[in-house]
Computed example of a mutant assay.
Amino acid sequence: MHFPNIQPKITPIYQTSVFKFEDLDAVRQYFDEPGSRYLYSRNGNPNSDELATAVARWEGGVGAVATGSGMAAIFAALLTYCQAGDHVLCAADIYGGSAALLNLELARLGITVSYVPFEDLGDLRAYLQPTTRLLLCETMSNPLLRVVNLRQLATECHQHGLKLVVDNTFATPVLTRPLAYGADLVLHSVTKYLAGHSDVTAGAVVARTPEDVARLRQIGTVFGLTLSPMESWLGVRGLKTMRLRVAAHSENAWAVADFLDKHPAVQAVYYPGLPTHPEHGLATTQGAGRFGGMLSFRLPDDAAVVNSFMQRSQLFPFAPSLAGVDSSCSHPLYTSHRALTDAQRAGLGITVGLVRLSVGIEPVEELLADLAHALAS
């Protein structure tokens, strides 16, 4: 059926697994002219392509792929450059899911990993092997909000023939665009700030070269990592308000960090917007003067104290994800960083008392009143 006069302002949801062809000439065109038609939604779909194009435009890349989750994005990014026998460097301060992928699954495929402490990222020589292919890091690390000097790290990686892969989930391209600082691939859990409403599970990887885009698309298709039409459509919708949301998240998070920094029940606050943060100056310039909506703080290492805070808070429910318009809290030791070894967690200071906040866009005075109540005991 054809409706020639319908011109939707918003791209419709192409909720189809397969597309029709008129004859053999039409299917030949699909293979001879990439991008001219659609065949099967695992290979490509108008909605997933729209999301990939939008994220690539935000990040300043030449192309991207949309994936079924942030973990799928990390997997696709690593496989773009690695095969069995290769070695990967990873910043020690990293999302626990990334460490689990490297330690448990990629190790089974013959890809090994070494973790580089934050203080050593400026000089990688001690960690290099003949088969080292890349370094994986985060713009703002999870959960301690360390800020990587992307330009310096890109120079260091390229000096040794390595690719730099950056997880930009916490910062978003509203604050930082890693490709502009020399990164080779940038990835996102679209689930978080890009979609922004805690109702989408998706990922994306953006490349600076056409060759890497082609490789990402091959990986996505062959491994079946591609994103569904509905999730893609929701991701595109979320992107349209990302600039406004990230500004509101950042403003509220700064106020919350300042409040917690002065509260007697709080032992430490980790937020790049605080002048006492060790990378505050770098975060100011690399983050366009804003610092994002994520922070962590430290309570006494007593589960009863942490439980009391979680039970008394009404506006920061314990929900182990982040970046929705509604605030939440998480506990790295028990959730996001469970897969790290005891030594890794101890080295990073991930203990019972460490709590991570995802600060939403609610009226800030309500958030501060809720935190005051939650910490009162």
Rank of each mutant, 00 (worst) to 15 (best):
F297N: 09
E211Q: 09
S296F: 00
Q15C: 05
G292P: 13
A107P: 09
H2R: 05
G353M: 02
V190W: 09
A214Y: 13
F223P: 03
S328V: 12
A26W: 08
V266G: 08
G220W: 08
H263K: 09
R215E: 09
I74Q: 12
S41K: 09
D342R: 00
A255T: 15
Q314F: 08
P46H: 11
T112H: 15
L187M: 12
T169F: 10
A73S: 10
H249P: 06
Y181E: 02
I13V: 15
I13C: 14
G44W: 06
M230N: 12
A171S: 15
F297E: 02
H160G: 05
D93Y: 01
K163H: 14
I13Y: 04
A265F: 14
E33D: 07
S328M: 10
L134T: 06
V236H: 09
P12H: 10
N168K: 09
D25P: 01
V200S: 08
H263P: 09
G85T: 08
M242F: 04
L150S: 13
V116L: 00
T341R: 10
V186R: 13
A73Y: 06
M71K: 14
Q29H: 13
T335K: 04
V55L: 01
E33M: 02
H2W: 05
L79P: 12
N149P: 00
P8Q: 07
G292S: 00
L371D: 03
A100R: 14
Y270E: 00
N142I: 03
Q159V: 08
G85N: 12
P34R: 02
P278E: 04
R28F: 01
C137I: 13
A92R: 08
T80E: 05
V116T: 05
S336V: 00
Y271Q: 04
G203Y: 08
G349W: 03
E105V: 06
Y181G: 01
A303P: 15
